[in-house]
């Protein structure tokens, strides 16, 4: 049973957050292992397994990015083995710039803050793009949109790594 089936949903890239939460709570109550304390071993195990599945399903599906990753994974649309050269160039340059700042002293802190804002802005734009393409896909079921989302997610992975690095740098500075 996949995550959507576990929550009684059809596979869609856009989901209503409140409806999702309601379904998760209802089913979690229904399958709560305490309710099966007097059931036989098989049923107890089933309650445990179902609860674990529901937790994983909710955690994944409530986040639009993790949800898109999950749907693409289910559809066997994997991250590109060879990312487009322009993406690699972009990521390489961003990393070089970040490394230069990293080697600087406290005076580069404002630049690091700027870089953080820049990455945050990139992530916002990426997430907005994913949201737009997700709703387009749910209406049209156009396969090419899934592949487009895949490449956006690939880029997102790089940018979120950069964001992690810049945050790490800012936090290290704070502790000094």
């Amino acid at each position: 049973m996949n995550y959507y089936e576990a929550l009684g949903l059809q596979t869609k890239l856009t989901l209503d957050a409140d409806d999702l939460k309601k379904r998760y709570y209802e089913r979690s109550r229904q399958w709560h292992p305490d309710k099966f304390s007097r059931a036989n071993a098989d049923e107890q195990q089933k309650a445990l397994d179902t609860t674990a599945l529901l937790n994983d399903a909710y955690r994944t599906l409530r986040d639009p990015v993790a949800r898109a990753e999950y749907v693409l994974e289910e559809r066997k649309i994997h991250p590109a083995k060879t990312p487009p050269p322009e993406l690699l160039e972009e990521v390489f340059e961003l990393n070089m710039a970040l490394e230069e700042l990293r080697e600087g002293d406290q005076s580069v802190r404002p630049q690091l803050e700027n870089t953080k804002h820049k990455f945050a802005h990139m992530l916002d734009e990426i997430d907005h793009g994913i949201a737009v393409m997700s709703s387009l896909y749910d209406r049209s079921h156009d396969e090419s949109l899934l592949h487009a989302i895949r490449s956006v997610l690939d880029r997102r992975r790089y940018v979120s790594n950069l964001m992690r690095d810049v945050n790490k740098e800012l936090n290290v500075d704070l502790s000094n």
């Binding site: 991250p79 590109a80 060879t82 990312p83 050269p85 993406l87 690699l88 160039e89 990521v91 390489f92 990393n95 997610l153 690939d154 880029r155 992975r157 790089y158 979120s160 790594n161």
Partner: peptide, 13 residues
């Protein structure tokens, strides 16, 4: 040669 692995976010030149 510039290559990368989106899964882990690596980029190698």
């Amino acid at each position: 040669g510039m290559v990368g692995a989106p899964e882990c976010g690596d980029v190698m030149k």
